[in-house]
Design a protein around this nucleic acid. Structure first.
Length: 98
DNA sequence: GTTCTGACCCTAG
DNA sequence: CCTAGGGCCAGAA
């Protein structure tokens, strides 16, 4: 398999930017929508370049944000109106499909 | 080259 | 509900 392309990175960035306020998406969904073979790549992109993206709208498949960002992310999401139950976002209501 | 490390996910127990 | 293990891909040392 060819290594990651700029196209994939741009696709991920575009998808994240496309998530409306008050909604969230999972790493796996974004990876799948962008055609990436592994959800880890999405995490890598966020870590390296999250400058202009609403990274707080991206959560894990369990509905829980990454450990180090959990507090902050939940705060931001709560400000946008995303309901969370005991540190877990309600994916059934807030999950955005592409 | 090898060997961690990391915004992950799935299945089993 | 929890932990453990395997798979996954891209950097940094």
């Amino acid at each position: 398999m060819a290594p990651i392309t700029d196209e994939q990175v741009e696709a991920v960035r575009a998808l994240v930017a496309r998530i409306p306020a008050g909604r969230v998406s999972t790493y796996g969904d974004i990876a799948d929508a962008a055609g990436l073979s592994s959800p880890r790549i999405v995490g890598w992109i966020m870590r390296t370049d999250s400058s202009d993206l609403p990274w707080h709208r991206v959560i894990t498949a369990s509905g829980r944000p990454a450990a180090h960002l959990a507090t902050r992310q939940l705060e931001l999401l709560r400000a946008e109106g995303v309901l969370a139950d005991d540190g877990r976002v309600r994916l059934t209501e807030a999950r955005h499909s592409f």
